[in-house]
Simulated scan of single mutants.
Amino acid sequence: MTDAAIRFERVTKAFGVVRAVDDVSFDLPQGALVTLLGPSGCGKTTTLRLVAGLELPTAGRIEIEGRDVSRLAAAERRIAMVFQSYALFPHMNVLENVAYGLVVGGARRQAAEADATAMLKTLGLEGLGARLPAELSGGQQQRVAVARALVLRPKVLLFDEPLSNLDARLRRRVREDIRDLQKRLGLSVVYVTHDQQEALAVSDLVVVMKDGRIAQKGTPIELYDAPADAFVADFMGEANVLQGEVLSAADGRGCVAIGGVVLDAAMRDHPPGTAALAVRPEAIRLAPPEEPGLPGRVRRAAFLGQTREYEVDTDAGALFVVTPASAEAWAEGAAVACRLERIIPLRA
């Protein structure tokens, strides 16, 4: 058996002359969670539908646990999907919703409800079987949808924007629930979102998509610390992208010219020459103007509780800066030196 739960080999899906997915290849390791991340129209949902069998590829090969499923219908793939809307039956109680797929598949109702009851217990929903979906919170409805999918014992579980209907606080709690469940049960999961924080929080592997192609794939840390280009840098969290010149870079530090000044900072190796340079907002420290750094002036300052946010005008362009609330506060209009503590050179 292959060590990949899902394998895409040069998969293309065309709708007429439009290639929604264009020559995409990636592996989902067994028991891992891979997130397809990107803006609207990038091809991530079409990729998910190709995994599910709701779309068939125009070209290429899709494998699930070593079996070619490229031409198989959804019902033949042992894939379960949790939809953005949850798609719970409003007239059925929770137990009936979870047991529904088993009953439709031919299981006896008593056996199906026993399996559904066990799955509700696994997901922390014990005692809620008699309630209607409308009597549950958003987070509970999400877990019912997951229970209905898991009770079918799928090879792979798919999530399509599962948290988009939840408020910010509940979204964080439910994404933690999903991640804990995935790890505890060793599930192989494909997760679609456009939310970078979700992707960073839940993923073993992130596939960033743009215009139907893979812009970059890697672990959350790899994509955050070493984005390949400005698109990935900006999509995997905030990034200030500046034009500058790399004077030297070796052994984890570099010397660059930006905005008329020469700065030394942590930086991966890069050949000398002009380059696009990304700086994360939290990698900038504001200091008194007489200290070394890129001179600037605070245009906007905001206190957000745990952090402070600043917009600083410099000769290299406007910088977005995030500092801990405990750090020195700077008023709007203040002259500052921007200390760039880590610089990420980007691919042209």
Score class of each variant (00 low, 15 high):
Gly186Asp: 04
Ala266Trp: 13
Ala331Ile: 00
Asp264Gln: 15
Val18Ala: 03
Gly293Ala: 04
Ala325Thr: 10
Leu54Cys: 09
Val241His: 09
Ala215Leu: 06
Ile343Val: 14
Gly244Cys: 00
Leu33Phe: 01
Arg297Glu: 13
Val104Asn: 03
Ala302Thr: 14
Arg268Pro: 01
Arg10Pro: 04
Arg268Tyr: 06
Leu187Ile: 05
Pro324Glu: 09
Val51Tyr: 03
Glu245Asn: 13
Val192Phe: 02
Arg175Cys: 00
Ala233Leu: 04
Leu163Ala: 09
Asp27Thr: 00
Leu56Glu: 10
Arg308Thr: 02
Arg253Tyr: 09
Cys42Leu: 08
Arg108Ala: 14
Val208Ala: 12
Lys183Arg: 15
Val207Pro: 09
Lys44Cys: 01
Glu222Ala: 13
Ala348Thr: 07
Pro271Tyr: 07
Glu309Asp: 11
Val146His: 04
Met1Asn: 14
Gln306Leu: 14
Arg347Val: 08
Glu309Asn: 06
Arg342Trp: 12
Ala283Lys: 14
Glu76Asp: 15
Gln216Ser: 02
Asp234Val: 07
Gly101Ile: 04
Leu205Val: 11
Lys217Leu: 13
Val18Cys: 04
Val241Glu: 09
Gly60Gln: 08
Gly101Glu: 05
Asp313Gly: 12
Ile62Tyr: 11
Ser326Pro: 00
Val206His: 02
Ala14Arg: 14
Gly260Lys: 00
Phe15Trp: 03
Asp160Gln: 00
Glu65Asp: 13
Glu291Gln: 15
His270Ile: 07
Phe231Lys: 09
Ile284Pro: 04
Thr117Lys: 09
Ala265Leu: 05
Leu72Arg: 14
Ser188Asp: 00
Ala337Phe: 09
Leu152Gly: 11
Val190Asp: 05
Arg109Glu: 10
Tyr310Leu: 09
Leu187Lys: 01
Leu136Lys: 03
Leu286Gln: 03
Arg148Asn: 04
Thr58Arg: 05
Val232Ile: 10
Gly186Asn: 05
Glu311Asp: 13
Ile64Arg: 02
Ala334Gln: 10
Pro271His: 05
Asp167Cys: 01
Leu304Arg: 15
Ala331Pro: 04
Phe320Ala: 15
Val11Asp: 05
Ala74Leu: 10
Gly333Val: 05
Leu123Pro: 01
Gly333Pro: 00
Val336Ser: 06
Asp3Val: 01
Phe235Ile: 07
Ala302Gln: 14
Arg297Thr: 15
Lys121Leu: 13
Asp204His: 02
Ala147Met: 02
Ala335Asp: 12
Glu126Asp: 14
Leu200Arg: 08
Glu332Trp: 12
Thr47Cys: 04
Gly38His: 14
Arg268Ser: 09
Ala111Tyr: 11
Ala112Pro: 08
Ile178Pro: 00
Leu56Tyr: 07
His194Ser: 02
Leu187His: 07
Asp115Asn: 12
Val262Asn: 06
Leu185Gln: 04
Val98Glu: 08
Pro90Ser: 11
Ala5His: 07
Arg339Ile: 11
Gly60Trp: 06
Ala130Leu: 01
Arg61Gly: 08
Ala325Leu: 02
Val189Phe: 06
Leu304Gly: 12
Val256Lys: 05
Arg108Lys: 14
Val146Asn: 03
Pro292Gly: 12
Pro281Met: 06
Leu247Pro: 11
Lys13Asp: 08
Lys217Gln: 14
Asp204Arg: 00
Pro29Ser: 10
Ala301Val: 07
Cys42Tyr: 03
Arg342Asn: 13
Ile344Cys: 05
Thr193Leu: 10
Glu332Arg: 13
Thr117His: 10
Glu96Phe: 07
Arg339Trp: 10
